[in-house]
Design a protein around this nucleic acid. Sequence first.
DNA 1: ACTCTAAAAGACACCGGTGTCAAAAACAAG
DNA 2: CTTGTTTTTGACACCGGTGTCTTTTAGAGT
Lengths: 348, 348
Amino acid sequence: MRANKGEPGSKQPTINDVAALAGVSKKTVSRVINRSEFIAEKTRKAVQDAIETLGFVPNPQARALAFRRNFLIALLHDNPNAQTVLNFQQGVLDAIKDSDLALLVRPVDRGSDRMLEDVRIFLEKQRPIGAMLLPPISENDALAALCSELGVRYVRVGSALLDDAVHCVSSNDREVVAEAVRRLIGLGHRRIGFVRGPVGFRSAAEREEGFHTALREAGLTLAPNHFAPGNYRYAAGVEAGEALLSLAEPPTAVFCSNDEMAAGVMSVAHSKGLSVPGQLSIIGFDDSPTATHIWPALSTVRWPIREMGARAARTLVPDFLDGTAIEESPVLASTFIERQSVAAPAQP
Amino acid sequence: MRANKGEPGSKQPTINDVAALAGVSKKTVSRVINRSEFIAEKTRKAVQDAIETLGFVPNPQARALAFRRNFLIALLHDNPNAQTVLNFQQGVLDAIKDSDLALLVRPVDRGSDRMLEDVRIFLEKQRPIGAMLLPPISENDALAALCSELGVRYVRVGSALLDDAVHCVSSNDREVVAEAVRRLIGLGHRRIGFVRGPVGFRSAAEREEGFHTALREAGLTLAPNHFAPGNYRYAAGVEAGEALLSLAEPPTAVFCSNDEMAAGVMSVAHSKGLSVPGQLSIIGFDDSPTATHIWPALSTVRWPIREMGARAARTLVPDFLDGTAIEESPVLASTFIERQSVAAPAQP
DNA sequence: ACTCTAAAAGACACCGGTGTCAAAAACAAG
DNA sequence: CTTGTTTTTGACACCGGTGTCTTTTAGAGT
């Protein structure tokens, strides 16, 4: 049964109400809430009953004050890919579900020069225990430094170690990109184009390295005009597509550093009347919703993003998430997903 | 200048530190923080200086406790469209930026039968002042009832009034859908297909009504086999496409109730070798990222989602967001966006 | 200078929890 | 039945702010 909380005038029951009803001191109730040992089973039961009867829920603000620490963790992101953010967030919530923690989500405007100041204000005001930084802002060292300065723990999420291992959660993107490109090579592709992510992004560099690794293994090299710069946006994919597909000897396959750019390349292929995958194979990266919304469906690399969210939370605040000890390695496995945008090259 | 907060052993300065430094009582400092009147300009200045010197930031937990109310608002969502959620969230943050409010974001698992119970636990634990419900869960009356029961204000966001006007923020989707369909008719289309959203969704019904309105005005009717059910998912779009485009006399244009389904229809058109928009015009709804990532770019309806977020926040907690008085009408304007997926029908 | 009033500042309790340490209860051993 | 130990419980201060009410100060009027 639940107390009549809906009625006007009725208030949230407090620890005092519980104590009075159970006939014990508030400190004893506090002990029950916090699962202290040194409590007689009989007393615990009585208090537990009183809690149920009143529908008592401890006031998190009061607890935070008394504990001299709050129970907030923050998710800082500036992600062009909304689905990624939400999936990650879901993973975090999976991990903290049975804890006392709450999650604050905070978009960060990377472009703004007030960015650092804004984040500082946010962190100073909310004082979360820890913060999780999603790529690309996870690569911002000033941000990490700010967290350190303010005594806020942090975890950086990314495709490679960006910091000490204790501060990172990452995935083996490089390896999986290599695997995807090997697949293209295995199908017979020799002229493979590459559309890069933005300069200065670790993730972009990782993917590029994976690409080159696979090429090297096969004794191939990337023709300079088969390389296109990009910035992870659709428009950059279109530009890259225009450039690569207008060549006298265009690539028969293109690896794009994310799905959005792959969609851009694909639309250029369509508008030029090239069939995909018949005349051009395309691979993307992210497994964003776009990957399955375009036609043909895009072969891509899936980031274990939800798991990374859960892992990031456990890495950030292991002391609040009892049970699971932190596994040794912070690297989770991405997977290559084959759909319909890849086939053997047309016979010359 | 800022205090040496990074150093180990140094603590957050409290109101007491400020009071001591300024040589006043903590209550006076409190008055300055809360912009009380009845404070001598000289004193205010002294306190303000002390605050700056120490880098003092009031502890929100302590304030919440003393005020007997916290400063949290919650965003409850279960949205297939991540971008929508993030844009809405951004709008909310725009609105609360200069206030004391903080935002909790909480995904809700609509499918789960524990959904209501989960939300109840969340609300009882966090006790936010108010909650904003994004569609489709904004249509859930049980959820609204739960908020009322727990004394949590709420605002429902949707494409039509779902509740009292005080509890709603919506947009004129019906009208804009009609406008889009009129455009098709104006181009000469007579056989126009319709792919509906899920049964029981207000948004789906609104869009359908708008569609019929435009048809009626032009003296047209929807052939029964030009209607396809759907659920806002890509796969449903594919099914609808298969059904509509296999007809002996297929529609020359299709209005899809969201972009994802439109993408599905488009991919079927591609695979059947139909050119879009040459042989088939397609219109979507949402202006999701997908709309511009597919080829040809999709004509669609843009929801003023960020503005709605800001508006929802102001409607929810006008008393915390000074300045802007609430405008009378809670209906914001959606807009029809023309891209490349619409053209005049091929001559028969 | 003196009173009166309004403005400004302070004292102290309180919000709803937890930490500390002492007191009470329970139990074992002599 | 005492005494000594170990569990269990409670009293009270405190976390960092705000509300209420009182006191002090400043300024106006006579």
